[in-house]
Write a protein that binds this DNA or RNA. Structure first.
Length: 691
RNA sequence: GGGCCCAUAGCUCAAUCGGUCAGAGCCCCCGGCUCAUAACCGGGCUGUUCCUGGUUCGAACCCAGGUGGGCCUACCA
């Protein structure tokens, strides 16, 4: 570990993008960072934790146009929503800013000037497609057309997902703007690039320093980027663009990824302004170490470009770039149709944030592995470990000392308290090493020992024997002290519980040192449940609510590459329509050529060798049956479909596929991300025509 | 096709330098208890540590090859 023991710490989480709400995938990162920050504070370190909304770029601009609102309105309301979610999740920043701030403009300008002064800015002309209606240059993701190689329709401007060809957007056949549907024109745009190649030698070394980042990430960067010259980085976008105009290049704007990480600087600066701290003490001081928490998708920006920017600007480099994996739910990617794409606000409407914080912590090691939220395990683990073992200690002992309080001197407890106190070092080390799973393992083991002790001493039996009153109080004083010790160790993960327990005894739990000394003579207030068991029905309700919410929701036109940009738009904002414009008008005769029928799914099986295909057997009524291969494996389990009525195109020319003949097509709605099979209302029968 | 990571009981995972490390929790079964949020305690149960070969006095841990996953990326390492 590169971290020094006594320096101050500046900690960041990646900036959530202003185009979508916080969901459970985001929470992995913010909860993890928050836990680490709290743990470092409880060790006595000075820590500042900053974050901000990432606001710039085409996605926000287009959303503003579609909704007829200004960008400022959109980023304003999204920032509020984000902060509300974080607050409810007990994720506490010292400062939460926005990349759309004067400070950020200033820092971006300064770093830009540093590139200029170093002679590292070059210009280039890029032939790019231009939307004559929206008056905007089209990024690859905003153009669709036919693949120049295999002629597959509806492909984005960078590569073909049918044949895998890569090409320039300008090579697409029949290109269309996904924004307006217009035929794009070829236009020349001037772009500004910065060179990062001069930094490659020292970045190569910097990345591989012990503890800089998880080993597999360092290997990945080394193998993938560092072995060859860095290409110049295109950091400008032509107007119109929602962002900062480049000071010495009118008409050019900073690309969102240029000013996004600079948001870390700006947020710190705002915090300094507010608190009277000196900025240079945090970003230009050997006494301060910087720790970034990021997802593995954005490691390139944080480990290659960002150090280069910092160095040129004269700022400190990060001591640690802590990289985590993605969230899966029940073993697979979050799925809207399965209701496992859960927004933070939806979770919070049904469940206590403490459960999620605990569960995530119990699964977080120091590596980059994806974290699976298995909902069954979530219920079982939280109930068994947290409520049944830890909380139970207080629950089973508190009432015996309600009138007496804790003993005035700490009784003999067979060394249990001392042992757990000694293990505090291990707990602290595990926190520091980001191994929160180990923390929970240690704590659960301590709780087991404590429960075993209470069981052996059986205070409930003693209470029935006259003259043993003092002994009862002793046993329960031990139990409560052991309990509080656990709560102190868990405090970074469960700050609310720590506060509640502090109130129970009237003694704070704000430092790991609190776990070293037993409480004596302390009065105990009336005990009420500190945490309820997870109700499986609430989990079900949350999944159901997510299914409903997202089924009704439109999808963001593009998932933009900003920090942790896993966000989605969740209302009927026309984004889907914009992303996939209406086809040219057709006649009723044209339409009649397509014979759509209701069909019943008789069987469905996944094609093991195929990535995307399910093999369906459908009935059109009577003996008319069809075998259809549908590319919906990623979105539907075979058993979800069996027995369902669906709409199929019955007169589609049969198509020979690798796995057999497909004799029709199941009609689905989709936008490239979600896929939704259409089903008729009750009463429809197989064979009915759809007009 | 290339790169990286991973592979331990039904499930989720542990196991400082290769040396009682083959473990914990959950699940399941049996027993106890009744203070506690149908919670707690005790006992039992399952493993050729993916396979094959090698190094070593000794390997889950090191090396080679293979198989199977995950992620990234693509005619380029």
């Amino acid at each position: 570990m590169v971290l020094l023991q006594n320096s101050r710490l500046l900690v960041t989480s990646a900036l959530p993008y202003a185009n979508g709400h916080i969901h459970l995938g985001h929470v992995v990162e913010y909860a993890q960072t928050d836990i680490w920050v709290r743990a470092m504070r409880m060790k006595g370190r000075r820590v500042v934790y900053v974050c901000a909304d990432d606001t710039h770029g085409t996605a926000v601009m287009m959303r503003a146009r579609q909704e007829g609102r200004s960008e400022l309105e959109i980023i304003g309301s999204m920032s509020e929503a984000h902060q509300r979610d974080f607050e409810a999740l007990q994720i506490r920043f010292d400062h939460y800013g926005s990349t759309h701030s004067e400070e950020n403009r200033r820092f971006a300008g300064e770093i830009w000037k540093a590139f200029r002064d170093a002679g590292r800015v070059t210009e280039t002309h890029v032939e790019q497609l231009f939307d004559p209606i929206e008056k905007i240059f089209l990024a690859d993701r905003f153009v669709k057309g036919s693949c120049p190689r295999c002629k597959a329709k509806d492909q984005y401007g960078d590569n073909c997902d049918k044949c895998g060809a890569t090409y320039e957007a300008t090579e697409l056949l029949d290109p269309r703007s996904t924004l307006s549907g217009a035929v794009p024109e070829l236009a020349t745009a001037e772009h500004l690039l910065v060179s990062v190649e001069p930094d490659r030698p020292w970045i190569t070394e910097w990345i591989q320093a012990e503890g800089r980042m998880p080993r597999e990430m360092a290997n990945y960067l080394k193998g993938f980027f560092l072995g060859q010259p860095f290409r110049d980085w295109d950091v400008s976008r032509p107007a119109p663009y929602f962002g900062f105009e480049i000071p010495d290049a009118p008409g050019h704007y900073f690309y969102v990824w240029f000013d996004a990480p600079i948001g870390y600087l700006a947020a710190t600066s705002q915090w300094c302004e507010r608190t009277g701290e000196k900025f240079d003490d945090w970003w230009r001081s050997s006494e301060c170490e910087i720790v970034h928490f990021i997802g593995k998708d954005i490691v390139k920006f944080h480990a290659l470009f960002w150090p280069s920017m910092l160095k040129l600007g004269g700022y400190s480099l990060p001591s640690r770039v802590h990289v985590h994996g993605f969230l899966t739910v029940n073993g697979e990617k979050m799925s809207k149709s399965k209701g496992t794409f859960v927004l933070a606000s939806t979770y919070l409407a049904h469940l206590d944030p403490a459960y999620l914080r605990y569960y995530y912590a119990s699964k977080l090691g120091s590596g980059v592995d994806d974290l699976d939220l298995n909902l069954e395990e979530f219920i079982q683990k939280v109930n068994a470990e947290l409520v049944n073992k830890v909380i139970n200690l207080a629950s089973r002992s508190a009432k015996f000392v309600a009138t007496t309080g804790l003993t005035s001197s700490y009784p003999d407890d067979e060394g249990l308290f001392a042992r757990a106190a000694a293990e505090g070092d291990e707990v602290e080390k595990a926190y520091e090493a980001f191994d929160f799973a180990k923390v929970t393992r240690l704590v659960v083991a301590m709780a087991d020992r404590a429960n075993e002790y209470v069981d052996r001493k059986a205070p409930w039996a003693l209470a029935k024997q006259p003259g043993k009153e003092a002994e009862v109080v002793e046993v329960c004083s031990v139990a409560l002290n052991l309990f509080r010790q656990l709560v102190v160790y868990l405090a970074p993960i469960l700050p609310k519980l720590a506060d509640d327990v502090a109130a129970l005894f009237g003694v704070p739990n704000d430092s790991f040192a609190c776990a070293r000394t037993a409480l004596v003579g302390t009065p105990v207030t009336v005990y009420t449940h500190l945490m309820k068991r997870v109700d499986p029905k609430a989990v079900e309700a949350m999944v159901e609510a997510s299914r409903v919410e997202t089924a009704a929701a439109a999808v963001a036109p593009v998932a933009q590459g900003a920090p942790s940009a896993q966000g989605e738009v969740l209302d009927d904002d026309g984004a889907s329509l914009a992303a996939d414009p209406l086809a040219p008008e057709c006649s009723i005769d044209d339409f009649s050529k397509v014979d759509l029928r209701i069909a019943r799914v008789l069987s469905a099986e996944s094609v093991p060798e195929a990535k995307k295909l399910l093999k369906l057997e459908v009935s059109l009524g009577g003996d008319e049956r069809r075998t259809i291969f549908a590319g919906i494996k990623a979105h539907y389990a075979p058993e979800q479909l069996v027995g369902k009525l669906v709409v199929v195109c019955a007169n589609l020319a049969p198509r020979k596929m690798k796995f057999g003949m497909s004799e029709g097509m199941v009609v689905c709605a989709g936008d490239g991300q979600g896929v939704f099979v259409l089903t008729p209302d009750a009463g429809a029968k197989p064979g009915m025509r759809v007009r």
